[in-house]
Design a protein around this nucleic acid. Structure first.
Lengths: 343, 343
DNA sequence: TTGTAGGCGTTATCAC
DNA sequence: GTGATAACGCCTACAA
C-alpha cells in the first residue's frame, strides 16, 4: 500500500496542499474548522509525514551522529544512553557508529554522516587518530561538532571531558594516606593528550606528599589485553608495588585479571587496586576494585545538550537575531572515588 | 559555505546535471573522459552527495532502525555491536533508540522511525509490551521488521531468539549432576512468552532426573532490584536452596548481590549460582557466577543479516524477479555454559 | 484564511 | 553519450 501524501489529502478534501501542510503543522493562520477536518481525515487514512522530504526542504534532519570506538564498552554505552535521552527529549534522533579504534573507519564514518546531513556530530576519537582534519574540514559546511572523552588537544573545539588529573590525583592521594608509597600506574600510550593529564595528576599527588617519582612504576598500554597482563607481571616481579592505579575501562579489567592471578599465585601481597571503571559490579569482585567512576551518562547528556543548544543558537542567528559568537567550551566533569576495599 | 551540488558542477563544467549524476555514480553509458573530468572537479570542490535528496528520490534510506529497552545493558550493547557491524559492511546505517521498558515510548519511537522511512526495523520489545499492533500496522507500508530477544509469540513474524529452554535445561542438569536437588529459579514475569520456555526447560530437567517440581522454589521478578533481593531473601530464609538459576541480565546481578550478602551473613551455604549474563567479569567474582552466556553479538549480526537479506530480496522482487514468498523465520541461537565454580 | 508556484538535490525517462 | 524535464513529498513566499 502506497503512502498517503499531503497532496492526496488535499485532493480528497478539495483544498490546496499548502493548506493541508499548514493545518497539519498547526499553523496559527489556519481556520480551526479546516484544521479539524484535515486532522481527522489524516488520522483516518493513517497519514505519516515524510521526514525525508521535510529534511530536504528544511535543510536539516533533526538527527545527530554519534561516533565512538566501541559501543559495547560499558563506558561508551552509558555515554550513548545519556546522549539518546537528551536528544529524545529535545526532539532529535541519533545515529550511532563505531570505529573499532580504526582511523580509516572513523574518517569514512564521519563523511557518511556528513553526507546524511546530520545536524551535528558527537565524537570520541579512535585510538589511531592523531589529527582532526578529517572532521574539522566540514566545519565550514555547517556541521557542528562536540568532542567527548577522547578529545583533540586543539583549543578551538567544543569538548566535554572528565577531569582525569583530579581523578588520578585523588586515587593516588588516597593510597598515600593509607600508607602506600610505591604506587604503580598503568595508563594509555604516552603521546595521547589524556595520558599527560593522568600522569600529571599522579606526579602532583606524589610531589604534594614528598614522594619521589619513579619512572619504573609507570606502564603505558594499548588496547590489547596482553599489554596489561605483561605490565602487571613485570611490576609484580620486579617492583612489588604497594598499590595499583589503572586509567581506562578495558585496561582496568585486563590488569585486574592478571593482578588477581598473581595474587592467587602468591606473587604479590594483597594491595589496593584502583581503576577507572564504570562496571557496576566492582564491589562484588574479590578483592573489590576501588573505582574511579567517570560520570558517563552525564557526559553524554551534557555533550548532547551542548550540541543542541549550539544548533538552536545557530538557528536563531540565522533568523537575524545574532549575538556574540560563543567561544569554544570545555566542560570538565568530576570523577568520584568509590572505595570498596581497604587494607 | 554553501554545499556544492550536482547542478553547480554541471554549470561549472558546461554540461547537464544528469550527465554529472551519471558520471558520479559510474554509469556504464558515460564517456570515460567526461567521467574523469567530473570526478576530478568534484574532488577539487569537495563535492559530497546529499543522501537526503537521494533517499527522497529513491524511496529508500539505507538506514535501519534499532529499538531496545536499554542501550547500556551489557547484553543489548553487544547485540547492537553485532547489528552495527553487519549493517556497516552491507552499506546500511543504524539509528538507535531505547524504550526504557515503556510501551508508550516504544510506540512513539516506532512511529518516528517509520516517518523517517528507515528501510527496516530491528526491535526487542519493552517489558510493558503485550501486543504488537503498533508495529505490524506498518507492514503494509513496506516496513520490514525483525524481532530479537524479547519477541512476540506471534508465528507470522521473523525473529531471532536464544534457546532459553535449552539454556535453563543445561544449567539445571548440571546442578543435578553435581548432586543438587533443591534448585531455585528466578525468572521474568509469568505471562511473558520467554518465561514459559525457561520454566519448561527447568521442569524438563527435573523430570528427566526424577525430581519433583516445587512451585515454592520459583520466583517471578520484574526489573526492580528489590524484587530480586526479596526473592533471594525469601528463598534463603524459607527453603535453603542447593543452587540458584537466574534468567536475565539485570536479574542475575541483582540476585547475586543479595545472594552474596546472605552468604557473607552466613545465612546460606556456598552453593552454585547460575545466571544468564553477558558480563565479562563473571569469573572474577567471589564466588564466581556460572554463566549461561547468550550469543549477543551473533544475535545482532544474524538479525541484521536477516533483515538486509529480506530488503534486498524485496528489491529483486520489485524488479520483477519474483520467487516464492519467504516464510517467516525463527532463528534460535544456542547458549553455552561457562563454569567458573564447582562445589 | 487559503491558493499558486517554485524549489530543496537527486535520478529516471525520454529525447536528441 | 549527453541533455532537457519531471518527479520524489514537503514547505514558504507571495498573491488572492
Amino acid at each position: 500500500m502506497a503512502d498517503v501524501t499531503i497532496k492526496d489529502i488535499a485532493t480528497a478534501l478539495g483544498m490546496a496542499a499548502s493548506t493541508v501542510s499548514r493545518a497539519l503543522r498547526g499553523s496559527y493562520e489556519i481556520n480551526e474548522k479546516t484544521r479539524a477536518r484535515v486532522e481527522e481525515y489524516a488520522q483516518k487514512v493513517n497519514y505519516r509525514r515524510n521526514t525525508v522530504a521535510q529534511s530536504l526542504r528544511e535543510k536539516r534532519t533533526r538527527a545527530l551522529g554519534v561516533v565512538v570506538p566501541e559501543i559495547s564498552n560499558n563506558f561508551f554505552s552509558e555515554v550513548i544512553n545519556g546522549i539518546e535521552d537528551e536528544a529524545f527529549t529535545r526532539g532529535y534522533q541519533v545515529m550511532i557508529f563505531q570505529t573499532h579504534e580504526s582511523f580509516e573507519r572513523e574518517k569514512q564514518t564521519v563523511q557518511q554522516l556528513y553526507e546524511r546531513r546530520v545536524d551535528g556530530l558527537l565524537i570520541s576519537l579512535s585510538g589511531q587518530t592523531t589529527d582532526i582534519e578529517h572532521i574539522s574540514r566540514y566545519k565550514k559546511d555547517d556541521l557542528s561538532v562536540i568532542y567527548f572523552d577522547r578529545v583533540p588537544e586543539d583549543e578551538n573545539v567544543d569538548k566535554v571531558v572528565v577531569d582525569s588529573f583530579e581523578g588520578v590525583y585523588q586515587a593516588a592521594t588516597w593510597m598515600i594516606q593509607n600508607g602506600k608509597r610505591k604506587i604503580a600506574l598503568l595508563t594509555s600510550p604516552p603521546d595521547i593528550y589524556i595520558t599527560k593529564k593522568r600522569l600529571a595528576g599522579y606526579a602532583k599527588a606524589l610531589e604534594d606528599n614528598g614522594i619521589d617519582y619513579d619512572e619504573k612504576l609507570i606502564k603505558y598500554c594499548g588496547f590489547e589485553p596482553w599489554e596489561a597482563h605483561d605490565a602487571i607481571k613485570d611490576l609484580v616481579k620486579n617492583h612489588q608495588p604497594e598499590g595499583f592505579i589503572t586509567c581506562a575501562d578495558r585496561l582496568t579489567i585486563d590488569s585486574y585479571e592478571e593482578f588477581k592471578k598473581q595474587l592467587t599465585a602468591g606473587n604479590t601481597p594483597l594491595v589496593p587496586f584502583f581503576g577507572f571503571t564504570n562496571i557496576n559490579v566492582a564491589h562484588l569482585l574479590d578483592p573489590p576494585i576501588n573505582a574511579i567512576v567517570q560520570p558517563a551518562y552525564e557526559m553524554g547528556s551534557r555533550a548532547a545538550k551542548l550540541l543542541i543548544d549550539k544548533l538552536e543558537y545557530n538557528d536563531r542567528k540565522h533568523l537575524g537575531n545574532r549575538r556574540t559568537v560563543p567561544l569554544p567550551v570545555e566542560e570538565k566533569l568530576k570523577t568520584h572515588l568509590v572505595i570498596n576495599f581497604t587494607t
